[in-house]
Nucleic acid binder design. Sequence first.
DNA 1: CTAGGGTTAG
Length: 781
Amino acid sequence: MLRLTLQSPLKPPLLSSLFLLKPSFPTTNLVVNHPEPPPTTTGLSRILNFFLQNHTKGSTKLFKDNPFLKKIILELNSLEIEGIVEKLSVENYESTLEFFFLLRNDYAFKHSRVSHIVIAHILAKKQRFRALKFHLQHFVQQEGSGSAHSICELILCRFQKWDSNHVVWDVLASAYSRCQMVDDSLFVFAKMKDFNIQASIITYNNLLYSLRHTDNIWDVYGDIKASGINPSEYTNSILIDGLCKQFLMQKAVDFLRESEPCVVSFNTLMSSSCKMGSVDVAKSFFCMMFKCGLHPNVYSYNILIHGLSVAGAMEEALEFTDDMEKHGLEPNQVTYNVLAKGFHLLGMMNGVWKFVNEMLHKGINPDIFTCTMLICGYYNDEGIKVREDTRFHASDISDTMLLSSLCKSGRFDEALNLFHEIESSGHKPDPIMYSILIRGLCKRGLVEMAFQLYKDMLCCKRILPNIVAHRSILKSFCEKGYICEARVLFDALINCDLMDDVFLGNIMIDGYAKLGDIGEAVHVYELITGKGIMPTIVTFNSLIYGFCKARKLDDARKWVDTICAHGLIPSARTYTTLMDAYGEEGKMEAVFELLEEMKARGIEPTHVTYTVIIKCLCKRRQMHESVRILKGMLPDDFQPDEVFYNTIIKNLCEARDMKGASQLHKEMAVHKLQPSRVTYNIILNGLCTHGDLKDAEELFSTLQDVGLMKCDYTILIKAHCAKGSVDKAVVLFKKMIEKGFEISIRDYSAVINSCNRDRNSVFQLSSLMIKCGLDTDSNCG
DNA sequence: CTAGGGTTAG
């Protein structure tokens, strides 16, 4: 059994064992690219043909157990397989389907386009619409965006006369919409119009859905009306959803009035109202539903109960929960999670436990949302109490809670012990417990150990890690600079179809962006959007950060338009990132231009925005003028934060205005801001370089209680060296070593360099270096 | 098509 101890974290090179991960993943669908051999006339395909002809139904089973035939398949290229598929399809649909999917799923065979379209026709003919839908989605994902043109061409050339032609066209247009390839979808629509093929309402709905963030919804809606087909209930609610997403609530309500109202439309309106903070409006929609003769469903109740819970109106939330049951609707996982969250927000742990308990009693297992609440530490230190509480004694949840508490307080030894104890008591290891440990270890920077656990659950225990585990590992890999390992994991998740949400993609994109590797960042972006995952504003903000980091500012700026094209609204973060980048390049006009642009869009600058602005201003101007300009810009209710102050204090120090700096330091208290170690470090540095060294020493000694950082020591040491007080420097240096800070050669040389080439001092420090440190090679950082 | 969480800037 795997035993982990905190004393022996794995060294990074072992991470290369990650490459073993891929074959260990328990799912299929790993795409293997077969090298395409030149077309052969070896007769292999004739043998295969002969074989398939002689076994209609059940042929593939025979085929599966036949190593000889397997060998034949691997010898053939996709063109030869295509020939077989086509020929077979004339004689036997079922065999063709089995043959195709067996090759794809079990042999990871990459079929040709023609084969795919043949299969689509068979599925259409057999009216297996669900399978057809998935088949074509899979197909267009594989083909990627921009493929519509050539695929349409192919269908026109070779499939025009096939019976199910119109169905295939229709579902193809849907597939492109569902995979977020809107341009391709529109291309298919246009071709269909040329050939008088009527799109179904389902296909229109898919298109409408993928365009719901944009003005184009009305064009599509107009098209539907003009074509004479009846909009469905879905059509209306998608339209309402789109209008809500564009914050056009009034238009949404107007449309609801004119169209046939349905529960989903009301739910969408309620959800949007709650998100905008108006639970009352949501409640009035709820009442309106009854007046329209409609009955709220579980979604309706949950939306409302959530709205009330986050607003702190727990009594009312509970009333609606009762009401729900009176109307014959059972509260579900979501209901309980939402109620638990509400009580937690109020700090009423009894309430939380009441609902987690009720959930267990009803046989509803805590799901990923409950777990996220547990794992992400909503329940702080309650775990230990809970485990002692007899009501929860020996239940899985109490173990989970205890584990969570231990991880939260950094007691990993105890956490791991508990974990092994649970394991050896015959309990099946639980993915939630794993993810708690993995997340905890990652948070502490112990990603190597966390990954060991991750692999242990995956490879040894055959438990699929949950989203929390994936996220923690991926994020930590990125943060620690193991970008290649992160990518291998990411690709494995994609290939196993375990990547269905945008968050993992965002983490991966951000990882590349932070390194300035914008090429890969964009590549990952294309990868996830090709999978039909909708990018969010976070995706774009990270991409823009990446372009800025790569110093491609004009490209970065152009991506703001892409955000809008996706129906998303650029955020204050978007603009702040751009402004910071332009400021760094000294392009103040651009900074102010962006500020105007964001305000024009109704996006309020945040305290971060203003921090960036002051940072930029100070680069070019006198400090006092900069502050004056900034003061003119700040809104009355501006709430500065600690970093805002730190930035100004730092600039004041650099302008040698130590008096102003200490004044601002005092002012922080007025805003109830606690100066942090960073603040003190800035002031210390200021005093050392532009102020009185005595003041610096004084500050240094008072800081001893607050806790000193390594750079506090080095700053003062360097200052002493520069002033020629090497003795004082040496005393401090020894103290720093005593405190257990890791001292690198770089630290030594930095100090020695600041000795003004005074040979005596250099000698003194060098001997100290030989005496005290560098006896191991571990600190050559 | 509609509900619960998490990923980004100084």
